[in-house]
């Protein structure tokens, strides 16, 4: 009799447990790494359903965002040839009144002298070491920092040109690296190569998840000279300033889905030898900041199927001779410019 009652009490206890198990279970599952979640999908149907639900995915994303630092700092100053940093370091800055903390670091042999302008896409950050062929990918959400396999070295004494964006048709994140096999001083005899590859994640297409690696393979070599500057990386395509010779300016557009180069019209007044003007990403649009003397003209181009056309957006007259790089255009027509040691 007592045994029966115990059994009944036990069953009731189990039932009660199952009643609220889903909520409690969800709290536990939310705190698991993605690799475990993937494995636990096969524990049973109810675990599978919870982990696969849209509701769960949203909550997980919110938790991940709450864990993320609000600002990422990467020291990028260029060191003299005699000095090298033995590590690349990313710092997290949670906000005003706090101290930036080291978030992740990676030893890099034989050391780096500095970094090129970082490129980011959907929370992933790609940065290339200046004057070397090393490329790093950082995922602040998982605090991972990965060194991509290095390919052929760049023969020139200039910084490498790395692009990074998302293939909008598949959701793959691709890195493209341009390097010079050889190039003479007046840039008349040269050979340019491109390497490209998709970033591989433990769970494909999910930038939140553990980053594995990326294999850079040779993609089509364009018969053009590519300017030594960070290309503009928009979703689906990467835009490089290029030319057949120094005097015939054009642009190359690299589509991420077919990994092919196509020609793109150059902005008016674009010149390969012009070191003061820059291609720029103006909140998801292709821009070109052309600087002459005390003026800067900002040209913008839409690339939406119809033949692209550049149009003059505005002209700024500055007091000093500055190198300006517009990087952000806000509503109500505020524009952020970064100059040499100055912000407007």
């Amino acid at each position: 009799m007592q045994g029966l009652r115990e059994a009944k009490a036990k069953r009731q206890h189990t039932l009660k447990a199952i009643d609220i198990l889903d909520d409690v279970l969800e709290e536990v599952l939310l705190r698991l790494p993605v690799k475990s979640l993937m494995r636990f999908k096969s524990v049973c149907k109810s675990w599978h359903d919870i982990i696969g639900s849209l509701h769960f995915e949203r909550r997980q994303l919110l938790l991940a965002m709450a864990r993320q630092p609000s600002m990422l700092i990467l020291p990028v100053q260029l060191l003299p040839p005699s000095r090298r940093m033995d590590k690349i370091k990313f710092f997290a800055y949670p906000g005003h009144g706090t101290v930036a903390e080291l978030m992740c670091e990676k030893l890099c042999s034989p050391g780096i002298r500095g970094c090129t302008q970082p490129i980011h896409c959907d929370g992933l950050v790609v940065v290339a070491a200046a004057l070397s062929s090393q490329i790093f990918v950082c995922n602040p959400a998982t605090k991972e920092l990965v060194l991509l396999p290095t390919g052929s070295p760049d023969c020139s004494k200039k910084s490498q040109m790395v692009g990074f964006s998302v293939d909008t048709s598949t959701g793959e994140y691709k890195v493209v690296r341009c390097f010079r096999r050889y190039c003479n001083a007046d840039m008349t005899n040269y050979s340019i190569g491109f390497l490209g590859g998709s970033l591989m994640f433990v769970s494909p297409g999910e930038p939140d998840y553990e980053l594995l690696n990326c294999l850079l393979l040779s993609v089509a070599d364009p018969p053009y000279l590519v300017k030594s500057m960070t290309p503009v990386c928009l979703p689906g395509a990467i835009y490089w300033s290029a030319g057949i010779t120094v005097f015939t300016q054009a642009m190359l557009r690299f589509y991420l889905h077919d990994e092919q180069f196509t020609m793109f019209p150059a902005s008016p007044c674009m010149e390969l030898a012009d070191d003061r003007s820059n291609l720029t990403n103006m909140v998801g649009k292709l821009g070109y900041a052309h600087t002459t003397g005390h003026t800067m003209k900002l040209w913008m181009a839409e690339d939406d199927g119809v033949p692209p056309k550049w149009s003059l957006y505005f002209t700024i007259a500055t007091m000093d001779r500055l190198e300006l790089d517009p990087f952000l255009c806000l509503p109500r027509s505020y524009i952020s410019l970064s100059g040499f040691n100055s912000y407007l």
């Binding site: 599952l29 698991l32 475990s36």
Partner: peptide, 17 residues
């Protein structure tokens, strides 16, 4: 929840069952 997650994260589906 965090503690339980840490305890089970390395287990196989069979072990969980």
């Amino acid at each position: 929840a965090k503690k339980v997650a840490d305890m089970i994260k390395g287990k196989s589906p069979m072990e969980i069952r």
